[in-house]
């Protein structure tokens, strides 16, 4: 049920996003979602994409530092309170959450939350037992096609 996420180190200067994005588009690789965590000094670009292995090679070929981590995708109704319900489950179960971000598929009324847990396997077990809709990568990228 885990999804591979690529993280890319970026300096904090103008135009820095264009290097990874151009490299991926030139290789014809689609990005499902990207999120940028930022400080005054540097940034971490997080990417979810289907062809993550190829993407990693392309990015490293462009001189970037890349690492691969496993994240958990959860689908919730795209309405007020949708996120809050999931967060409450996580908090009550005492699961360590490092960070999260969200995206939608546009037309649908559902949102996908991406979570980076310290222990993703344990987190998935707890979330599923509480009836939370954890989305696997096949389903996630299948959905993106429509």
């Amino acid at each position: 049920m885990k999804i591979k996420q690529l993280s890319v180190f970026l300096e904090n200067k103008p135009g820095r996003l264009s290097v990874p994005c151009k490299a991926l588009s030139k290789a014809g690789i689609n990005i499902l979602t990207l999120s940028l965590a930022d400080t005054r000094q540097f940034g971490i670009l997080r990417l979810v994409l289907k062809d993550w292995q190829q993407a990693k090679q392309v990015l490293e070929g462009a001189g970037l530092v890349v690492n691969v981590t496993e994240v958990v995708a959860i689908e919730v109704a795209d309405r007020p309170g949708g996120l809050a319900e999931v967060l409450e489950v996580i908090e009550q179960a005492g699961i360590n959450l490092e960070y999260m971000y969200a995206f939608t598929f546009g037309s649908e009324d559902k949102a996908v939350l991406v979570f980076r847990f310290e222990d993703p396997d344990a987190a998935i077990k707890v979330l599923q037992s509480k009836g939370v809709n954890v989305v696997g990568s096949v389903e996630l990228f299948d959905r993106a096609k429509h």
């Binding site: 993280s7 530092v65 980076r116």
Partner: peptide, 17 residues
């Protein structure tokens, strides 16, 4: 930055700095 020191977690990177 070197690949082996890079983390996707902000707090790890801040700690390195």
């Amino acid at each position: 930055m070197r690949a082996q020191d890079f983390s996707d977690e902000m707090r790890v990177m801040e700690a390195l700095r």
